[in-house]
Write a protein that binds this DNA or RNA. Structure first.
Lengths: 146, 146, 146, 146
DNA sequence: TTTT
DNA sequence: TTTT
């Protein structure tokens, strides 16, 4: 009934975009969110959290984020079930993003990509802020409700 | 750039709905969220947090919630400035709700109001779940983006 | 780096408590969180989200919550890997609760359990508020850091 | 009863640290969080949200963040009342941080400060993750419960 | 394996 | 009183 999650982490690899049969863009990526206190004794533990975005945001994520990019995600946790290759029912956890925020670049420099043009940016209820000049860029969906 | 708040508390008084000149419903209410550890020594401290909802949700909140109702709110914190009666600039904090969830009733019984009819419920991106049979009811906006 | 999740839902079954070898209480339970818009056309979909709490809270959850209870959880999403029975590496998603809040009862009446005695309740950093008189009860950890 | 807020924004000025009479460090700062869709038509609106951190984190914020730094805050919204200079009761909204995360620097370069040494970093329940190699640094409280 |  |  309430299901809200906010993550900030780095992409473990380049995002993967595809289109549904009806032509809707979907992008998946994984965020590495280091756990508390990892690192203090040499070990670096992280949670690798699968995320999915739809539509305009999917395209923006695909265009502007890549392996190592830091991103903020605001969404809900979805648990899907599927049939394993051995016929067993299994579960998959995935964060369905309402908003994705481009927060920074890989260690070696700021992401070179320019911010997306958002002139027409509509009301992405529940999505993130858009702020072309904020050093980060917004990747909110900007044409379709979801 | 990320601004997300989730509250669960009780309405301190009946919600107040009005319409903007352009006919959009706006409802304001205050949630009492008890602070940590209040109560342990007799004192009960709470934060009284002003909330605002728009459109369809505004109407539902007004219809189904009242003083003492328990509600969940998912939204963003907005700080507005205004001119005080003494000419001073002052600030007002308000949670702009993307979703409001009807969680329970006043102590004396469950809220008697029936759940809203949500047949037509659209995609309330970022809003809360709708589930007429869940014991709680959803008050998501269901006709206008915001 | 930021990993915060807030859930409100109902327990799908009674919570299960056990003790670690070092004597620490751990309780696991699953929360059913209905998805958006389920129900409008007859289908009622939910996410079944596994949660875990430690120590004092584990004991309180075990004592005061049961199948059907409504609860609020504030925590972080943890992805653990384990070896499947077929030697395959698999992942398990679990919300590690910082705070658990007892929000309501099953439909037939309010949970009959009395609120936990919290006289000694300490500072549960990051946990939820405690407010014995608020209609809900708090199940915050109250003796050990975690 | 549940009161959780997550923010990412930039410091509007250098943080201000002081000590209470009992010697506890407190640091206050304001985060500028741009509102949704500001910028699309030239206007850039933001919410200026006051935050407060205590103890070890207060010291770290004071040491490693400055005007323009990007930071993530995880905490609760607190509304305090005070007597205005005109005898009127007024309210002040403030986010009490459980965790503060150093996310980036001002535009001209990455914040030059080295990450805090966190060898001894304890379990900051409800605080943020620590990850020395993630490009950001953690400013979690690391010696006192709060 | 799922709650109302 | 506000940041990029």
């Amino acid at each position: 009934m309430i299901n809200r999650i906010v993550l900030v982490g780095r992409l473990t690899r380049d995002p993967e975009m595809r289109y549904t049969q009806s032509g809707i863009a979907v992008t998946r990526f994984t965020l590495a969110c280091d756990r508390p206190f990892s690192g203090q004794d040499g070990k670096r533990e992280a949670d690798f959290i699968d995320c999915v975005v739809w539509r305009k945001q999917a395209e923006n994520v695909s265009k502007y984020l890549s392996k190592g990019s830091m991103a903020g995600v605001d969404g809900r946790l979805q648990i899907s079930s599927y049939e394993g290759q051995d016929g067993q029912k299994r579960y998959r956890a995935e964060v369905v993003a309402d908003g994705v925020r481009f927060l920074s670049s890989k260690g070696d420099g700021r992401d070179s990509a320019p911010p997306p043009r958002d002139d027409e940016a509509p009301q992405a209820k529940g999505g993130f802020d858009q702020q072309p000049y904020s050093g980060g860029i917004d990747l909110s969906d900007d044409d379709l409700p979801f």
